[in-house]
Every structure is written in structure tokens, then in C-alpha cells.
Simulated assay, not measured.
Amino acid sequence: MSGLTRRLLGFMASDLGVEREALDRAFRGKRQTVAMHHYPPCRHPDKVIGITPHHDGLGLALLLHVDDTPGLQVKRDGRWFPLDPLPGALVVNVGDILQVLTNGKYRSAEHRVLVDAERGRATVVMFQDASVAGTVKPLPGLGEARYREIEYGEYVKGNFRGLAEGTRFVDSLETNRFC
């Protein structure tokens, strides 16, 4: 997964026109976590939700559908769209830290998981954290910074506070937020 992450970051760096090493360095040696999710069938799927709508706070998430049960949805223009599982394919989610690193060129997507009435659903997700020398800030060479720099520990605290309050902490880092 680390090798795949580095390859994806190389493609992103090329797309952004920044040094591959600068983006790779923001991720190299940082924390990786793995989560395995199981959503059992639920006879009343209209009364529960698998995972509430959210944006990933870390750098990058790689999700593997273990089975063919749908449930993952992404929000775009106020509407929810299903992401049907493709055998052997990974879903790549940009997290809020990567949004800051890329100065908003890559944006994290709001997503949720719904349960199925008849079938269980299982996924494995690898989360890759990132920071630049202990701070969360846009990489150089991407124009005027749209996000203010913040120490990584303060970012994590703010992100958890935002999750608890139902807000998105990364929005508070925008430099032209009130202009």
C-alpha cells in the first residue's frame, strides 16, 4: 500500500506541476492505519446508517470492497451518488490534509455508507497521514496559499473537535474565507 500511495502521489505531483519529492516527503514515514468495516444486513435500512456523512481528515484513504454489496455514496452538488463496487478496484479518497497540501487543487469528498436490507457489506481501508515538517500547509509552488499553516497536533485537535460539532475544520483554515 505504501508503494501504491507513492505512485499515486507521483501522478498527483505531475498533475500539479510540483516536485514529486515534495509531495512524497509529506507522506513518507507518516502514520498508516487500517480499518476493517463490516455492515451486517439490516431489515430496516431506512432507520440506520452505516457511517454518517463525513470528509476524511487525514491525507489519503485507499478503500477495498471485500464483496459486491453496494453502500458507499459520494455527495456532489447536493446529491448523493452511489459508488458501486468493482472487483479488485480501490476507491481513492482525498483527505482534508491533502486538500491543504495541494492548495485546494484536489478536494476531499463528502461520503457516507448505507446498509443493505438483505446482504452484509465489508471493506478494508488504509489511511495514510501526511504533514510537512510537522505542519499542515500548502506545498510551495502552487500559487498564493488558500489555507493558513497550522501545527499538525493542533490540526488533529481541531479536526476531532469539528467532527464532534458536525463542522469541517479544514474550512476554518481558508485564508480568504470571509472575503
Rank of each mutant, 00 (worst) to 15 (best):
M1H: 15
L4I: 07
R7S: 05
L9C: 05
G10C: 13
G10S: 13
M12W: 04
M12P: 03
A13V: 05
A13K: 12
D15Y: 14
E19I: 05
E21C: 00
E21V: 13
L23E: 02
L23T: 03
L23D: 06
R25D: 14
R25L: 07
A26Q: 04
Q32F: 14
V34E: 12
H38S: 01
Y39G: 03
Y39T: 08
Y39Q: 05
C42P: 07
H44V: 13
H44M: 08
P45F: 10
D46V: 03
G50D: 02
H54F: 05
D56F: 12
L58S: 07
G59T: 02
G59Q: 03
L63N: 07
L64G: 00
H65S: 13
D68M: 04
Q73R: 09
Q73F: 07
K75A: 09
D77C: 10
W80D: 14
L83S: 06
D84L: 13
L86T: 12
G88E: 10
A89F: 04
V92L: 03
N93I: 01
N93H: 02
V94R: 08
G95M: 02
L98V: 08
Q99C: 03
T102P: 06
G104Q: 15
G104N: 14
K105L: 08
Y106G: 09
H111T: 07
V113N: 08
L114A: 10
D116C: 15
D116Y: 07
E118Y: 07
E118V: 04
E118I: 01
R119E: 00
R119I: 01
G120E: 10
T123C: 06
V124N: 01
M126E: 03
M126P: 03
D129G: 15
G134N: 10
T135Y: 03
T135A: 05
V136F: 12
K137M: 11
K137A: 15
P138Y: 07
P138F: 02
P138K: 01
L139R: 15
L139K: 08
P140A: 15
L142Q: 02
L142G: 03
G143D: 14
A145P: 12
R146W: 13
Y147A: 09
Y147M: 08
Y147Q: 11
R148P: 07
E151P: 03
Y152R: 09
G153H: 12
G153S: 09
G153I: 01
E154F: 09
E154C: 06
K157C: 08
G158S: 10
N159P: 02
R161P: 01
R161N: 08
G162Q: 00
L163I: 11
G166Y: 14
G166I: 12
G166K: 08
F169C: 00
V170R: 00
S172W: 04
E174V: 03
T175P: 08
R177F: 11
R177V: 11
F178P: 00
C179Q: 15
